[in-house]
Amino acid sequence: MSRIDQISELLKENPADSFLQHALALEYIKTNLDDEAKNIFEKLLLDNPDYVGSYYHLAKLYERLGEEQEAIKIYERGMDVAKNLNEQHAYNELKSAYEYLIY
């Protein structure tokens, strides 16, 4: 059974688990299933906007897809969330990636 299958099975038991959703999206990225990953990250952040770790990965995915303006929006939103949650490490990672993209 693949990791995607394993995580999907676990999600059947607990479909609202943000950690599992995030993990599944990362597995989709590893297998170049970018649309599936993007859909999961977008839904995850819609349902759980404080899941700060997903902003970085979604923005990086947008970058890879050539959607730089969307990536910038996601970095900015993620930085706002990280700042509000006092998640300094996440904020710094998002800011660094954001600055690298825009400069």
Rank of each mutant, 00 (worst) to 15 (best):
M1V: 14
M1L: 14
R3H: 14
D5L: 12
D5P: 07
D5Y: 12
Q6T: 13
Q6R: 13
Q6L: 13
S8V: 09
S8R: 14
E9S: 13
L10K: 13
L10F: 07
L11E: 03
L11P: 04
K12P: 06
K12E: 15
E13Q: 15
E13I: 11
N14G: 07
P15Y: 02
P15M: 06
A16P: 06
D17S: 08
D17H: 03
D17Q: 01
S18W: 00
F19T: 14
L20W: 02
L20S: 00
Q21W: 05
Q21G: 08
Q21N: 10
H22R: 03
H22I: 01
A23I: 08
A23C: 10
A23K: 09
L24P: 02
L24R: 01
A25S: 02
E27D: 10
E27F: 05
E27W: 03
Y28L: 10
K30S: 15
K30C: 05
D34W: 15
D34P: 07
D35G: 13
D35H: 14
E36I: 11
A37C: 11
A37K: 04
A37F: 07
K38W: 03
K38M: 10
N39Q: 15
N39P: 07
K43M: 11
K43Y: 09
K43C: 06
L45R: 02
L46M: 13
L46P: 03
D47H: 07
N48W: 08
P49D: 04
P49R: 01
D50F: 11
S54N: 09
Y55A: 08
Y56L: 15
Y56Q: 13
H57W: 12
L58D: 04
K60T: 09
K60D: 10
K60Y: 09
L61A: 04
L61G: 03
L61I: 08
L61T: 05
Y62D: 04
Y62L: 05
E63V: 12
R64K: 14
R64D: 11
L65A: 04
L65H: 02
L65I: 06
G66A: 05
E67P: 02
Q69K: 13
Q69P: 06
Q69A: 12
A71Q: 00
K73H: 06
I74A: 02
E76L: 07
R77Q: 06
G78H: 02
G78Y: 00
D80H: 06
D80G: 05
V81P: 02
V81A: 02
K83L: 08
N86R: 07
N86G: 04
E87C: 07
Q88M: 11
Q88E: 14
A90Q: 09
A90D: 08
Y91R: 00
Y91T: 01
N92A: 06
N92Y: 05
N92T: 03
S96Y: 12
S96F: 14
S96P: 07
Y98F: 15
E99D: 15
Y100G: 15
Y100I: 14
L101I: 02
L101E: 08
L101T: 09
L101D: 05
L101M: 07
I102D: 00
I102S: 04
I102G: 01
Y103T: 12
